[in-house]
Design a protein around this nucleic acid. Sequence first.
RNA 1: GCCGAAGUGGCGGAAUUGGUAGACGCGCUGGAUUCAAAAUCCAGUUUUCGCAAGGGAGUGCGGGUUCGAUUCCCGCCUUCGGUACCA
Length: 859
Amino acid sequence: MSEYRFEEVEKKWRQEWVKRGTYTVKTDPNKPKYYVLDMFPYPSGAGLHVGHPLGYIASDIYSRYKKLNGFNVLHPMGYDSFGLPAEQYAIQTGQHPAITTKTNIDRYRGQLDLMGFSYDWTREIRTSDSDYYRWTQWIFLQLFDSWYNKETNKAERIASLLDKFNAAGTDGVKAVCGGEHEFTSIQWKEFSEKKQQLILLDYRLAFISDTSVNWCPALGTVLANDEIKDGVSERGGHPVEQRKMRQWSMRITAYADRLLQGLEKLDWTESLKDIQRNWIGKSIGATIFFDIEGSEEKLEIFTTRPDTIFGTTFMVLAPEHELVAKITATSQKDAMENYLTSTKAKTERDRMSDTKNISGVFTGAYCIHPFSGEQIPIWVADYVLAGYGTGAVMAVPSGDQRDWDFASHFGLPIPAVIEGSNVTEGANESKEGVLTNSNFLNGLKVKDAIKEILKRLHEKGIGFKKVNFRMRDAVFSRQRYWGEPIPMYFKDGVPYPIATEDLPLVLPEVDKYLPTETGEPPLGRASDWSYTPKEESQSYPLELNTMPGWAGSSWYFLRYMDPNNDGEFVAKEAVDYWQNVDLYLGGAEHATGHLLYFRFWTKVLCDLGYLPFDEPAKKLINQGMIQAEDGQKMSKRYGNVVNPDDIIAHYGADSLRLHEMFLGPIEQHKPWNTKGIEGVYRFLKKLWRLVHDHNGNFSIQNTPATKDELKALHKAIKKVTEDNERFSFNTSVSTFMVAVNELSELNCNKREVLEPLLIVMSAHCPFICEELWEKLGNKDSITNAEWPRFNEAFLVEDSILYPVSFNGKMRFKIELSAELGAKEVEEIVLKDAQSLKYLEGQQPKKVIVVPKRIVNIVV
RNA sequence: GCCGAAGUGGCGGAAUUGGUAGACGCGCUGGAUUCAAAAUCCAGUUUUCGCAAGGGAGUGCGGGUUCGAUUCCCGCCUUCGGUACCA
């Protein structure tokens, strides 16, 4: 082989690594573990473009680096293979989504294989395999069989709730619950089976209920909040409307506080944690009940500023609020009906874009202020959301801009309750200040006033402190075909779990991937979609909805630890050894979707005793997007997609890997530049030439290295080690270049230098390093080598080239012995002819000498 | 609007603890080698004044701290991401 032929080298090692099982990993208690995980891809029909592998390359480098440092590294890959695109394609072509999915996976695998990743492919998983989704279904059943105990602050089995109900009814039960229940143990036991089951549904972590959902008519399915962007569906950009439907949900709100608190100990970027914090949206305030004049009903509101209660001049209900119909005065009925109709007609998007138009209608009814006894008019307006808090607010126009806008528009009074507020221009939303015009709260600071009012509300029994979250329970039903069947059947309208030994509940065949004529989901087309429980002769209809895309990805990191276990979702030994993910790499676009559900399911499984940790990933890095050369998003639509296969055919996988890293910091968005790859390609050729003579024969010297050669090597070892530790892979690539440039200059082809250098580079460009490593006579793979330790002694300089500055401006450099102290350096520099020139005969005011770094002379 | 991240040559970017701004690479210019090309090698490449030697300016903008600021502080501007009436 005369020159660097990457095709031969890479082909050879691709085969050799498979043959030797180089990347197969087993639990090994003698070694410390390290778990590196990539967010697994959805295998789309378009294949991978050059932007996709960015994170995979980075995680591969880190995995290899950790392995060279003595860790037993788990680094798996799989496919998130249920999802909408395959199903849309199936609707159009009639082809079974399983077929397209398999074709796409094969294509992905072919592309991934070219890139030299150290994945242990024996651990591959696919969420659409029944061997896998069997356990997704099993986890669903665990959630169905759990409730959240606020006393222990954990999920517990439904059995423990039943014990409580049987012993004392709801007395003393502190649970997260979707309804209001109060009964004694005697009543509980007398309830019918059906009634009991319906009550339990309000407690289960996976539950079915009539909820207002985001319905997307174009996709024919409901969507979760995180699947909607700017009021339209994230996939396809179709309009979304609100609809009441009977749906499965996950009680993620039970975990809102823990999901929030858990962020503190995670090594994720602050910005990503902030996105989750905002999404969870915790706010602390008070629930207050107001009497309604001439009615038995009470108006329950939530406010974060109970201290401003004396500034309340009106109440506002959301149009959907149940009291609207009950309290609207006859004289206002027509106006109200018109208003409700016009609001309903608005889509989510209209309502969002229409925030400037202030609208609302007076109900004709009044509340009574609990402390002043004054009448407060009750209005209905669509600026109050039905889904947050109680769907009703006490409006304080002097303290809330939206209330101020509303009051100004309808000419309602705006009394100030904070000293010094100027409420003619707008509301004073500051939480600092002293109360005024507020009866017993006058003179108190906001913080103290809140305490005082809570005390008074409590005394009167009309209010209490309340914590609210913006996050809603996660809708779990999808009216689609290509997803995990929900393992439930219905008896008399009540859902029951199918037995775990009957899992997996395999996705049935259907004639078309469309809703039925009666509007039921595609599973309604299956010829026999029913279940016969053991010891029963009768069969019952099965659930027709399937699970959402995030189900399979919420626990996949666990399955990699023990992918072929058909007795449990993961063996205890495996999870005890591998624990949670040490480094997780993926896009920030999953901040409010996958990454929350992923944490949620982990916490549930931890509470139920299956896992020894309650966070799935300790450290998370969000890789940036690679834009196309024209600066746009890389997409088929714009015709600017660069295919990694083409790049590899031209330059090889090592060049592709180096180039992607060399583009810039891993977290940053950056444009792709095909031309630039020439640089790293030249570098690899230069490396090859370093150990080959002019005739192309491998050539290595076994003589001891010189001081300069060792310095070049150890400088590189030190820098690359530091860079890898902080995931700065772009700078490690330039360090390789510097080292090879220096060694080429020195004509160094010594074993003593090249062996360690190859190890250091092998994480980035494994093929060429493995090849040269073998040529050096090594029998074992370079992946089993040991990371070299840099020796400070080789880096010590005899002399320092001091930059000399005058007033902070560098003027000249002077080479001085490294041994000299600050005083001596100062003396020599000041005597130097060049200094005299810049001093122009003046005395220096001050001379700063930082030994081994810099001299600065102030004139 | 609110929250977050980022602004450095023609381009991607480097400068890790306040210490030579522009490492490394792309591109470009000139040259060597070659019949020619590819490949390789050498020199130059922030800008401005200057033949040069040498000088001025310079890390989004305006201030500040410091002997010294891309780095720290204050106030703005721009771009990107998140969120969107959450009471």
